[in-house]
Each structure stands twice: as structure tokens, then as C-alpha cells.
Design a protein around this nucleic acid. Structure first.
Lengths: 193, 193
DNA sequence: TATTCATACTTGACAGTGTCTAGTAGAGAA
DNA sequence: TTCTCTACTAGACACTGTCAAGTATGAATA
């Protein structure tokens, strides 16, 4: 039924780790606990991941791949849709997202395959921003707009996930409405020169 | 010379913990390490903080107090200045900031004195937004704008601190210029109705 | 002055952790 | 049969947070 059995221990450990990250945060992920959940010895996961950071790297790569696919798929719908896609990904895959954004757990530079996926997501957004600004726009301008869009999406996502924002704004009935609203505001700051 | 000696062990432990958080992240903070740095037994910090979460709570309260003061001081200068103040606080006090924004380390609800300071910062921003929108604006609208401003500031701050953003945008010569640019964009989305 | 008592610690122990080292069962190739 | 590689297991080590219990010191009280 689940992919855990067919893909072997590696998949089992990854699924267990993501589930723990989603419910209790990445710090609650323990080599011995995931081994226990998979019904193997406490050293078995080391064979597949090297060390604890290796698990975080594997989760990051998988997460950034999904995020990149999600953002790329929304490219044709404009920057607002991309912003929305970012936030919705964070909420839907918070187990992955929480790990991806903690580079004290594993720095992407040490795991090139994960870095490639992160670049895919970033480039999709920047390409779209550049296209809207026009070909003759300065690179600095494109970077500034990209940084802005990324900041809005990332800020809203992290604040919704475990920030004080959601509790404060309890009068905002519909979270999806808030996300759409914010994404629209953000994309309206980019205009063709 | 330093305030550590005069304020006693509590202050010494707090300073050591913040320094560790700034250099190696909050997870590197260990009860036994801070005790070692203060030259006391491994149980001494427990007398002042109860447990590990107590240290995080104390750092959070101190951090939110500083953040609130910084935002309140910039109130008169408008929303762009408040956004800038938020980001500059995060960069200048990243030891505090990293702890404050991790509510898996200690949830603010369990530490009312820290929550009060967080509320101060949030309310300062919302009051300013409300003032600009005008008295007859809907509460939902004010909340949406506040969420937007907060998202931009928080997103940029976290991305600059340990996100992949800074490395991507290496062609952005001046980080302060980027911050000013983003803050101005964000505040321009709020207009009196 | 003697006793009580809270503060601010110290010492010792326990279970849990990541990870190093060494060993083993099994499958496939020579 | 022997060799080698994969995928583990078993044991140990230093480290962690935290519980329990003991101790020194100063102030308040009788």
C-alpha cells in the first residue's frame, strides 16, 4: 500500500522523519527514533544517510524538488500565482518546509543536489519577474523585485506556519483569502517599465 | 566591565546563550555548555531558568522588548521605517531573533511576559497601518495590510539571515539599499481610502 | 545568641542522544 | 570455494537534559 515497503528502509526512514518534523518540528527527529519506527537497529539509518544531517539533506532535496515543480507549474499564471503556490506548498508540506528553511540543520552548499532544486524554484520566479519588467530592465531591478516577491511569500508562509500572525488575525475568516490578497498586493508592485 | 558580573549568574548565562545562538544557532545552546562558560556547575542555570525552555523564554522576552522599542521609536517615521527597523533589528540582534521566531523552542503562550512584548511590537505596526487607512476602514482591511507589512519584513529578515537569498543576490551591492527599497515598495501598497 | 529558613548553588545519578568501531548474514562473481 | 559488496546488527563512548539530594551562606526571628 504505502511506498515505504517497496522503496526499502531509506524511504521508510524519510517518511518517518517528515512525519515527525510536521508534528513536532525537525529537532524532534532522532536517528534512534526513526530506526525504532522502521523496526531496525539504531545504526541502520546510518547506512543510507551517513549522519543526521544526511536525513535533513534528503528531506530538503525532496522538498525543494516539489516546491520547484509547484512554482514552475504556476509560472504561466503570473507572479501572484507563484506567490500563492509558495505559501500553499509550505502549508501542505510543512514537514518538508520546516526542514528546508533551517540551514543550521544542513547547509545546502554541502549538498549540491539539494541546491540545484532550490535554484530551480528561485530561477522560475526571477525569470517571470524579468519577463514582466521587460528585457531592457537592469539586473539589479529584477533582483530587487525577485527579493521582494520571495520575501512576501516566505514571510507569510513562516508566519502562518508557526508565527504569531495567525492567532493575531483571528478575525481574518478565510486564510486562503488572506493568501490571495497578499499575493495580489505583492504582484501589483511589479509593473512593465 | 561587562554587565555579566554585576547582574549575576542569570545575566551571564543569558549572554552566553545569546552569543551561542548568534554564532551557531539556538540548537547549539546547551545547559551544560552555558554553565561551563559561566564557570559554575551544570545545575546552576536550572535555579534561574527552570529548564532549557526557560532560557529561550528569557531571550525571547528580552528580544521582543528590544524589537518593540525599536518599532515604536520608528512609528512617527511611517510604515516603511517600521519595516526597515524590523529587518535591521533582526540583523543586529540575530542571536535574539533566531530564538524569538522559533516557537518550537518555547511557545509564547506559556510565557505571558514575553507575549506582552511581542504584542507591543505587533500593535505598534497595526496602529500605524490603521491610522494611514483612516478611521472608517474595515478591521479586516487593516489586518490584511498589517499581515502584509509583517510578512515582507519578516520574510526579508529571515531570508537575509540564513536563507539562500543573500547569496543569490550578490549583485545587489548594498544590503541596506535593498532593505530600503523593499520597505518602500511595501509601504506604497498602503494608501488612505 | 541560637534557630529557622530561603537563596544559590554543588554533586551524583539516570535515561536518552549521535556516532565511532567492529562484527555478521547473505547474495553474486571469480 | 573464496572474495567482495551490501545491508545491516551489537557494543561502547562522550555528551545531553533533568530529577533528587546535599551544602554553604546570609537574613530574619525567637
Amino acid at each position: 500500500m504505502s511506498s515505504a515497503k517497496t522503496d526499502g528502509l531509506r524511504r521508510q526512514v524519510l517518511d518517518a522523519a517528515v512525519a515527525i518534523a510536521a508534528s513536532s518540528g525537525p529537532d524532534a527527529i532522532s536517528m534512534r527514533e526513526v530506526a525504532r519506527l522502521a523496526g531496525v537497529s539504531h545504526q541502520a539509518p546510518y547506512h543510507h544517510f551517513g549522519d543526521r544531517a544526511g536525513i535533513f539533506a534528503a528531506i530538503s532535496e525532496e522538498g525543494f524538488r516539489m516546491l520547484a515543480e509547484s512554482i514552475e507549474a504556476s509560472t504561466k499564471l503570473g507572479t501572484a500565482a507563484m506567490c500563492e503556490a509558495y505559501v500553499h506548498f509550505a502549508l501542505a508540506h510543512n514537514g518538508h518546509f520546516r526542514v528546508m528553511m533551517r540551514n543550521d540543520l544542513c547547509s545546502l552548499e554541502d549538498y549540491p543536489s539539494a541546491l540545484i532544486q532550490a535554484d530551480r524554484a528561485f530561477n522560475a520566479l526571477r525569470n517571470e519577474v524579468t519577463a514582466i519588467l521587460g528585457e531592457d530592465s537592469h539586473e539589479d531591478e529584477a533582483n530587487a523585485h525577485t527579493a521582494y516577491m520571495w520575501s512576501v511569500a516566505h514571510g507569510l508562509a513562516t508566519l502562518l506556519l508557526d508565527g504569531p500572525l495567525l492567532k493575531k488575525l483571528d478575525s481574518v475568516a478565510d486564510v486562503n483569502e488572506l493568501i490571495r490578497n497578499v499575493a495580489r498586493k505583492a504582484s501589483s508592485t511589479i509593473v512593465h517599465s
